[in-house]
Design a protein around this nucleic acid. Structure first.
Lengths: 217, 217, 217, 217
DNA sequence: TATGAATGAGTCTTCATTCAT
DNA sequence: GATGAATGAAGACTCATTCAT
């Protein structure tokens, strides 16, 4: 019996999603995808021009919405910054909302976009996100007085580190959880930890550096 | 003049280290390693039986010491737990010390072990570490009273999430920085954030859940 | 409304003709033909068993008539030879007439038969034609006296060369021009050049070889 | 026993030459070449980066010298034209010399360049040559008086036709003969035919058109 | 009749590994 | 010890042909 076209397309997409999620773009095998989809490898090319476009089919929608979200965050932060209000929780909640939204619609696809796109045109996506978060954090870490001094090298390093780890952490949480209440709760807790932790950092920073951990290496 | 055997072996290792760090195990090319090492590809096989064992040669030492460290941490935690003292900062500083030690000796190798071992038998290393950290955190998150109740599902989820993100964050920091003072400082700041953040979490948890972030999705 | 069978067949033939003419038999793509014909590729196989028979459908009619023409030329030349009259212009005009006739009816098909049939059973068509022309030319080049000596090796080589180039030239002219007055005019001019050139050749041959070109290699 | 590298390279080239000559670039099969060369297909890629560069290895040398020859012809003709001397035999002998030279060094390669390069960057080579010859012939066919009138459409058509057929004819002669005395002789005869034929054409053209052939279509 | 999805052998190409030298 | 040519299986992709609908 011949399977209907759209069912086959769905099978291919499902198999490809799994394969890309498991081994990433460059290690993904068209043959394996075909077998998992119950299809011959040649037939995949009736549905997608090549490996790249098969990847696109999975990742492009998220990427588009993701680009939009980033732009929106940038705009809103610019606004609140103009109004003088730039608190850490503000930033985090904004980012959180955008990401939760994205993840609600495309959980696996988003994970693939962020973590499995090595060797594709999307490999720069995560670094860009980190850069955005980093530049936001530089403001947060700067002295609360509205001075115009450029951030210290130290602050820049910390901001970069925090940005990378926050983003990576979000990716990890997304990777490990299906969309649902638990996910939202975890993201919430996660950002709460960072929010409080960074607040503490700023505070202790005013007195002396590394004031909390007693470890003397 | 003929290059001494050990010098060649060192060249191969150095080149392999770089290659594995840059593209990971499965995308690494023996030819590229050979060329970078100033050696013929065939000759690599006189030093290492195959790609896998070349990877082993790089990663096995760290892995061994890493296993030991984990065991040690487990033991110490068990002890301090028996003595009734189990605070978050304690855990973190222990883990930190162990990792910093590992990283001081094998910075690149450790990064490879944790982040670039896909397709090898070491794939499971990071998950195991997360499991350990997670089980530690479960205790920390449990009510301070010495009750024996098994942790709630919620606590377990949060512990797992925090474990994964902490570990991933450490990997990221290691990945992005060379060994040195800055690295130690960043790890310190990082764990400080988590330490304070988690403390805050426990505190706010006593009153009502998710009490810090005002975002109502 | 459903397209009538013969209309579909005609569309396929038209598209196939174009494709074969442009890229030759072996590089022709059934899919491309189908698309150009506004037909599905599968449906082509209801009209023609396979690529080869589709090619046949285009080329067989010309080939048949072409075989007939050759036979006729052979016969007539035999006759006129028996009567003792064998002049170059005679031959050429005979061949010309036959070809013009063929080309008038099947311009593209003839071009395909001669120039684009590589990889099919018609590959040998052009060589055969050259052989015929060559054997005719051997007589023309032979001394006008009616002696029976077999042609010299030199004459045979020249006859072969002239045959190949004449035939090839005719193919080229056919390939580059649509049927019409210009085509006829060009073929006329072309054969006129050969006619006069060969006449000159025979003449100068009586005195000394290669009497016209001053190039001393 | 292991064959020496250069011997293998030579075998590959020899097999590739044959394959390209027989079926052309796009129909050539690397596997077939490999088998004919007594080599595995993978091994060919140790010698040539890909099919295209294997083709280049065969054809580039001829192509370079060919380009030079064309340029030289263009220059010399320009000179003789400036001096007012532009006879048909002149042109032909120049072209002949250049081609014979090329063919003496690269017989098969030259044939491949001219006749079997469909699908490569060299496919324009023959048309260019025809264009050059055509533009030369337009001058020859123009009235002998030094008038400046642009050639008639008719002359242009005839020049184009003659150029294509001459070039094609030369290709055919090269294709069918090994380098040697016979080849030179045949080219000589061939160009002699054209030389005389074109002279006759110009002459008869002064009186009335198509004055030699009695064929009334 | 017509469709177009499916097949599978074919294409070029890469690469870890082996082995004659 | 070292070389680097050779191998062969696997990679992505194409295309004439078949067949369920």
């Amino acid at each position: 019996m011949q399977i209907l076209k759209e069912e086959v397309r769905a099978n291919i997409l499902k198999a490809a999603l799994l394969e890309f999620k498991q081994v990433g773009y460059s290690n993904a095998s068209i043959r394996r995808i075909a077998m998992a989809a119950g299809v011959t490898s040649g037939n995949i090319y009736r549905y997608y021009k090549n490996k790249e476009q098969l990847f696109d089919a999975i990742v492009l929608p998220v990427h588009n919405q993701y680009i939009d979200s980033l732009e929106e965050i940038r705009r809103k932060v610019q606004l609140s910054y103009a109004r003088g209000a730039t608190s850490a929780p503000d930033f985090f909640s904004r980012i959180e909302r955008a990401f939760i939204e994205l993840f609600k619609t495309y959980s696996s696809e988003f994970t693939i976009l962020l973590n499995r796109s090595e060797g594709t045109k999307y490999e720069g996506v995560k670094p860009e996100l980190e850069d955005l978060v980093s530049s936001l954090l530089e403001r947060v870490l700067a002295k609360p007085v509205g001075d115009e001094v450029s951030p210290s090298a130290e602050n820049r390093a910390v901001a970069g580190m925090l940005a990378s780890t926050i983003v990576e952490g979000i990716c990890v949480i997304f990777r490990d959880n299906e969309e649902g209440e638990t996910l939202k709760f975890l993201i919430d807790q996660y950002l709460s930890v960072y929010s409080k932790g960074i607040a503490g950092l700023i505070h202790s920073d005013k007195e002396n550096r590394s004031g909390c951990c007693e470890n003397n290496h």
